[in-house]
Design a protein around this nucleic acid. Structure first.
Length: 203
DNA sequence: ATCAAGATTACCT
DNA sequence: GGTAATCTTGATA
């Protein structure tokens, strides 16, 4: 399997308003190449973090050393460390100077599943329940895909990590809700997820 | 220098 | 459903 059969999303896809991009990410493929090995997950759930008006966004108080990637030109990967244990990966959006990004919250594992299973559970067999728990949370995705601080700032349109056209998603299957795990700006309905998909992280 | 919060997860009852 | 674990970051409580 090579990458030629994928329709890779171009930089221009990401250099727009984050709230326009976030729902469009659902159904797309998130792909990481590790040598000859390919890891692929279908995007099931995301959250948008918006510049200026969004108190929950890391970018709300302006540029810091940690969040500076959010202000980069769209099409980069923003990875941060949280709760002493976990990494979360984000798709940077909009033009340079705008601090916005989309948190990838859940994937449906499609390829490279053995690798993901080994990294998540340190064994090779999983129960059906464990399978559903492989990549249904932002920290779990980073563990399964081996994404950590070294991947912060990577080009999302490059050879190693990129997004590709996936499955067509009817608009009626895109649901919207408040975001998970935040204290400020709780009311803003900027979480987007696929209706009835078993890999969604929370109801 | 010190400190509290945090875009989570796994494991407990 | 409840919470301990765990540590980096950014503000200075």
């Amino acid at each position: 399997m090579n990458t030629l059969q994928f329709h890779k999303l171009p930089e221009t896809f990401f250099q727009k308003d984050v709230l326009k991009i976030a729902p469009k990410l659902l159904g797309k493929y998130f792909i990481k190449k590790e040598g000859q090995k390919l890891l692929i997950g279908k995007i099931i759930e995301v959250e948008a973090y918006v510049d200026k008006i969004d108190e929950a966004s890391h970018s709300f108080n302006g540029v810091t050393n940690r969040n500076k990637l959010m202000f980069a030109s769209g099409g980069k990967l923003y990875v941060y460390f949280i709760y002493g244990n976990h990494y979360c990966c984000n798709v940077v959006c909009d033009k340079e100077g705008v601090g916005s990004a989309v948190l990838i919250r859940a994937l449906e594992p499609l390829k490279g599943i053995e690798i993901m299973v080994e990294r998540r559970f340190r064994k090779s067999e999983v129960t059906a329940k464990e399978f559903l728990n492989l990549t249904n949370g932002p920290g779990k995705i980073c563990r399964a895909f081996n994404i950590a601080k070294d991947e912060n700032g990577m080009d999302l349109c490059g050879e190693e990590i990129f997004l590709a056209e996936g499955e067509k998603v009817p608009k009626k299957n895109v649901l919207q809700s408040p975001r998970i795990g935040i204290k400020k700006s709780k009311e803003l309905p900027w979480r987007f997820y696929l209706k009835d998909n078993p890999f969604v992280s929370a109801k």
